[in-house]
């Protein structure tokens, strides 16, 4: 199965910020429907890798392919418009939610479907209501982001990303900015997504989520993938010393 056409393929990606290497030869193949959790110490390059997949960051070398279309590579020079179109394959959820503060919850969700995809407003609104119900916020469509708690904002952000009907969802530490009592509600929405077969790449330290939802857990250390294992092996028999250290700290 792992050699069929992957939905996301990352090949030997390198990236530096000035003299500081962030990604040092990362390769990763993700099959449709897989849930990948990426863990590791901060500064290991997890978020940068995720942002490179969506090309919010450029890469220095290597190749990134999503849904069979090249996002980045040495011979790839995409016009900005093409890049915007390719990004529609990917949905992204950010640590700081990044909802549009000047728009209502409903307008946050339908802005891109109506103005980028050209879906009629009435249809987009109907779809947005379905998504809001799915993330447990059916009564909040007229609220503004500032009126919502962090957990509610993050759930709206997930609905907003889903409204573009992406093939792959990227989560960049989606619960790291949340108060502990709000983490659960966001993880529940993500669990639901994974059960519906969504392909997900999740940068997170929530090991309970990883254990329950992940097909593979990846440990990144200093810009490299040092472990890539199914949850049961990751927790009981990791191959890398870095993973053992990480787990010792996380699980006490």
């Amino acid at each position: 199965m792992s050699n069929e056409n992957p939905i996301v393929e990352i090949l030997d990606v390198h990236k530096s910020y000035g003299p500081t290497p962030i990604l040092r030869g990362v390769s990763l193949r993700v099959q449709a429907g897989e849930v990948i959790v990426i863990a590791g110490r901060s500064g290991g390059g997890k978020s940068t890798l995720l942002r490179c997949i969506d090309q919010l960051e450029t890469i220095d070398s290597g190749e990134i392919t999503v849904c069979g279309e090249a996002m980045a590579g040495s011979t790839i020079h995409l016009a900005p418009g093409q890049m915007a179109r390719l990004r529609q394959n990917l949905g992204m959820v950010f640590q700081q939610f990044n909802l549009f503060p000047h728009l209502s919850v409903l307008d946050n969700i339908i802005a891109a479907p109506t103005k980028v995809l050209g879906i009629p407003r009435a249809l987009a609104t109907a779809e947005a209501r379905v998504l809001l119900a799915r993330v447990g916020l059916p009564e909040k469509e007229n609220a503004f982001p500032k009126q919502l708690s962090g957990g509610q904002q993050q759930r709206v952000a997930i609905a907003r990303a889903l409204a573009m009907q992406p093939k792959v969802m990227l989560f960049d530490e989606p619960t790291s900015a949340l108060d502990p009592e709000m983490i659960r509600e966001v993880l529940d929405v993500m669990m639901d997504l994974s059960r519906r077969g969504m392909t997900m790449i999740v940068v997170s330290h929530e090991m309970s989520f990883a254990r329950a939802a992940a097909d593979r857990i990846i440990l990144m250390h200093r810009g490299q993938i040092v472990d890539d294992l199914p949850p049961e092996q990751f927790f009981t028999a990791p191959s890398s010393e870095h993973t053992r250290q990480f787990l010792a700290k996380r699980l006490g």
Binding site: D54, N98, L99, F100, H102, A112, K115, R160
Partner: peptide
């Protein structure tokens, strides 16, 4: 306007003009 707004707009598939018109300039 926060950099995260640019990230969110681009991640939603908006090109520069839409990002400016829908997200950045109103803020």
């Amino acid at each position: 306007v926060d950099q995260g707004q640019t990230d969110a707009a681009r991640a939603l598939g908006m090109d520069y003009r839409r990002m400016m018109r829908i997200v950045i300039l109103p803020q």
